[in-house]
């Protein structure tokens, strides 16, 4: 299953890429492949903008406007004017590791 065409914002700077393959390891959607010893984006529409590749790139070669693709969270942000928070996180105890 794939989502809307040509909307994903992931970009790769091949100049900065060292070919360490970390982005291929973390991508859950097989967006990237190795080409001539460097990473390359081959399936843009599969990208879910989770940000795993950017987060794990030690060389800042990847940019992506990441976030959670959740309409409910965006509706809530629209109504409250705050940050996108979905109903999944409401109504429970917020902290579990303190005293």
């Amino acid at each position: 299953m794939k989502y809307l065409k040509n909307v994903a914002t992931v970009k790769l700077d091949r100049e900065k890429c060292t070919g360490c393959r970390k982005c291929l390891e973390v991508c859950p959607r097989q967006v990237l492949v190795m080409r001539e010893y460097k990473a390359a984006i081959v399936d843009l529409d599969a990208c879910i903008e989770c940000g795993a590749c950017r987060q794990n790139c030690a060389f800042d070669a990847i940019t992506v406007k990441s976030g959670v693709g959740c309409a409910q969270a965006l509706f809530n942000a629209l109504l409250t004017g705050g940050e996108p928070v979905c109903d999944c996180e409401k109504g429970g105890k917020k902290s579990s590791g303190c005293c």
């Binding site: 299953m1 794939k2 989502y3 809307l4 909307v7 994903a8 914002t9 859950p28 959607r29 599969a46 990208c47 879910i48 903008e49 406007k65 990441s66 976030g67 959670v68 693709g69 959740c70 309409a71 409910q72 969270a73 979905c86 999944c88």
Partner: peptide, 11 residues
């Protein structure tokens, strides 16, 4: 959309 593992925020 928020429940699926194939949507993205731009979309």
């Amino acid at each position: 959309t928020g429940c699926t593992p194939f949507t993205n925020i731009s979309g």
